[in-house]
């Protein structure tokens, strides 16, 4: 893979929380339109890695760039200078993030949830943002819920709204942090369907997940993480069906 092809470029990322080193040198390169699934046992650093990509967590060493733009820092003569909050917020509008527990704004209606960021962060006209929002709600199958409040929806519906909210900024990359882990089993399918649909339309996505079947079906690349490093990566057929590393084999034996 050549350098200029990478949509997401992660180089030597280290991150510690106090004495605990959660990421110990992670390197990943993702092509535009590629769907990457990150698997791994809990505590392997996969969620932390996802959160460093949109600078919700700062990195201690290494760097991350999206579409050629360094995230959270400015590089001047071999040094990284931290960006001001305002600049980081602007960068985040290019990176959609879907949380495990949705984090919809409960005091705003579904439509207001979708309109808020485009209007306040991108300064879109409200009418235009509303039209986009309604289109997105239709796409996730919730056109009739525009006026509802999040708590009036089921978990699966809330997560679909959260996905639509992330899409409303037309991000270059979509990050999913265990998007179905907080859902009742019978609601998982509808959320995965929406993500599969996005994968078909060529959205660059990184999905931290425990759904092995989903990873096999949708991901172009499966990344297995353990102990803060990438243990193994490759197409699903290689990583999931014929893992080369014993740790990957042990993990898959437990979850499959």
């Amino acid at each position: 893979m050549s350098e200029d092809q990478a949509m997401v470029d992660i180089r030597g990322v280290h991150k510690s929380f106090g004495a605990l080193e959660v990421l110990r040198g992670v390197d990943l390169r993702l092509r535009p339109g590629e769907v990457t699934a990150i698997l791994g046992p809990s505590g392997s650093g996969k969620s932390t890695l996802l959160r460093t990509i949109n600078h919700l967590e700062k990195v201690d060493r290494g760097w991350i760039s999206i579409d050629g733009e360094l995230i959270g820092y400015r590089s001047v003569r071999g040094r990284l200078y931290e960006l001001k909050e305002k600049a980081v917020l602007r960068q985040r509008t290019h990176i959609g993030f879907v949380f495990q527990d949705f984090n919809l704004f409960p005091h705003l209606t579904v439509l207001e949830n979708l309109v808020e960021a485009p209007v306040s962060a991108l300064r879109r006209p409200r009418a235009e943002a509303q039209a986009t929002a309604r289109r997105l709600l239709e796409r996730v199958g919730l056109a009739d819920k525009a006026g509802a409040y999040p708590r009036q929806l089921s978990g699966g519906q809330q997560q679909r709204v959260a996905i639509a909210r992330a899409l409303a900024l037309e991000p270059k990359v979509l990050l999913f942090d265990e998007p179905t882990s907080a859902l009742d089993p019978e609601l998982v399918g509808e959320v995965l369907d929406v993500i599969k649909d996005l994968a078909r339309t060529g959205t660059t996505m990184i999905v931290v997940t425990h759904e092995i079947g989903f990873a096999r079906e949708v991901a172009d690349t499966v990344v297995f993480m353990d102990g803060g490093v990438v243990v193994e990566q490759g197409p699903p057929s290689a990583v999931l069906d014929d893992p080369s590393h014993p740790r990957t084999r042990a993990f898959l034996a437990k979850v499959l």
Binding site: N54, L56, E85, K86, L89, R90, Q91, R92, T93, I95, F97, F99, D101, N103, L104, F105, E116, A117, S120, A121, L122, R165, A166, L169
Partner: peptide
Amino acid sequence: GQLEAAAALGIPRLRQIRR
């Protein structure tokens, strides 16, 4: 999580507080 979601959406700081 509310602040995190607002930050992840790039909503400006004052607006995060007010809205």
